[in-house]
Write a protein that binds this DNA or RNA. Sequence first.
DNA 1: GCGACAG
DNA 2: ATCTTGTCGC
Length: 326
Amino acid sequence: MALEAAERPSEETLLLWEREQARLKTRVVPRDTEAWQRDPAFPGLRRVGGVDVSFVPGDSSRACASLVVLSYPELQVVYEDSHMVRLKAPYVSGFLAFREVPFLVELVQRLQEKEPGLMPQVLLVDGNGVLHQRDLPCVGVAKKLLQVDGLENNSLHKEKIVLLQSGGDTFPLMGNSGTVLGMALKSHDHSTKPLYVSVGHRISLEVAVRLTHHCCRFRIPEPIRQADIRSREYIRRTLGNPGSPAQGQERHQKEQRPKACPKGGSGAPAGPGRPPEDCGRDSSTDLKDPQPGFQEQQKDQQSEGTGPHKDSDLWPPPAARVQSPP
DNA sequence: GCGACAG
DNA sequence: ATCTTGTCGC
């Protein structure tokens, strides 16, 4: 019993994927389309979403997908949905979205059905943007530089990183063609490794960078960081009771159900001068949590990929299935 | 054979 | 992404 999502896709499939990416790229709107994006203070922005997929250690096909919605500018979790999924496509550099996006789309659809009022106004996705074709504006936030189109994590690149002085500082990621593919962003004053921000859809690169910066309490923006933390916790809990039935979550815990949490510092409002802590529980549960003022050593947190925001899974390779435009 | 490669 | 122990600093 092991649906291997590990074998390399055939060249034919990769061609299909490339074709789909090119098609979606055509539809991306790399400009600001929302009112709140026009003012530096982001007036009207109330909810920012974050998505992530964490994997089960030994199993190459099982993972936990999470979607969280945070209030803005408080950055408090107001919604969370984490559940186990079965991966169908392998990870191939450059095609991350074909592996993870189907689940992210599903999470958004579940939210639409259960708590449409909590639909985020923008979605931060781990990985690089440039695609994403749906309705939600989104941003790609990667922790490592995707070395494509001439981009290289070479000495020159590292020199530029050293020149970043304070949180918010950036430098453009110029592709061979002279196109700016994204921006390296120092997410806070003491962060050593920059974030690589790129446009997803319906947002300009400039606003994407500012928004990402405003969502950072630590190196990784809170929406993505929370989705990461929660999806991993979910897996830890699930693996904690393997002594029972099937591998997993047959238990009627609080899983399958999206949960709207009216948390929000109830009782302990944001203290003066301090960013509001999470939903009451946070620092004690969070493993990696270097204070903005120091320690930036956490290897990596997570980020996944902004990519094709397609509907159908192009895996396994359906004989050239035709995509129907949203 | 080995390394690189968003996650 | 995940496997890994300790370690330094708030």
